[in-house]
């Protein structure tokens, strides 16, 4: 069976494993499956792997790999080739993931409370105007959809979400804001996301969550993980202000 991926060097200390060049659920499933095998099989010199939409990077220490060569591996000309060989051995079962596997195992669904509009979502009315809908409809469409966390990147805990309805797509703001408060829920083009930290940014802000997405004291500092399913649900300003972070959301999972 043909390998469902190709490998290429990402510099001299990482290898990029690509499953495709599009954002789709099949590539995503292959990526998540690869991460599982790589993390379970961490070979000597393996540092960590980083999943993205349709690819995974394996970061390694060439020196550690070199010090751990065994038997037939010595025949390979470069450390890179040895790493590719070790990766291929770990991913030998990855073909098993096909489109017929409609459901992924161990999927977690996380519900995220959002206070839409007002001072928490100053661009909600503008997004509604751009889309030719009422603010209430934008909120309903945004909170009725099922989202998939394809990857975490850009900032600690920042989820790249797929699944936003096209009806509420809206271009970035002409002038970015100097500071976007942590927890802001925004729309940029066909994407929606939540800002884990206060940063500058050009997204249209439609609401804010009281949930902390970056938790540096937790074992998993990112509240969301690649592969999670996400739902947003509206809360009032009072609920926002009195939200008790952890217990209530865990209860909704």
């Amino acid at each position: 069976m043909k390998k469902p991926y190709k490998m290429s060097p990402l510099g001299d200390s990482s290898v990029l494993i690509q499953f495709g060049d599009r954002m789709d659920e099949l590539s995503h499933r292959l990526v998540m499956e690869a991460v599982r095998w790589l993390d379970a099989g961490r070979f000597p010199g393996y540092i960590e792997c980083v999943p993205a939409f349709a690819s995974v990077a394996v970061h390694y220490s060439p020196i550690q790999v070199l010090r751990s060569l065994d038997g037939e591996e010595r025949m390979r000309e470069t450390v890179y080739e040895t790493v590719c060989y070790r990766v291929e051995k770990l991913l030998v079962h990855i073909d098993a993931v096909t489109e017929s596997d409609s459901e992924m195992k161990n999927v977690r669904t996380v519900a995220i409370p959002v206070c839409y509009g007002g001072e928490y979502g100053p661009d909600l009315e503008e997004v509604a105007a751009i889309c030719g809908r009422s603010a209430a409809e934008v909120v309903r469409l945004h909170s009725d959809a099922d989202y998939l966390v394809y990857m975490i990147g850009f900032a600690p805990g920042f989820p790249y979400l797929g699944g936003m309805p096209e009806e509420i797509a809206a271009p970035r703001r002409g002038t970015p804001r100097a500071v976007i408060p942590a927890g802001s829920v925004g729309i940029a083009g066909g994407q929606t996301g939540v800002y884990p930290l206060a940063t500058p940014g050009g997204w249209q802000l439609i609401g804010r969550t009281p949930i902390k997405l970056f938790r540096p004291d937790a074992d998993a500092p990112s509240f969301l993980q690649a592969g999670d399913r996400v739902r947003f649900f509206p809360i009032t300003e009072e609920e926002f202000l009195s939200w008790k972070d952890n217990e209530s959301v865990d209860g909704l999972r």
């Binding site: 990402l10 510099g11 200390s13 060049d21 993205a52 349709a54 690819s55 990077a57």
Partner: peptide, 8 residues
Amino acid sequence: LSEPVTIG
């Protein structure tokens, strides 16, 4: 599509 990057 966003992909992993590394130092350098």
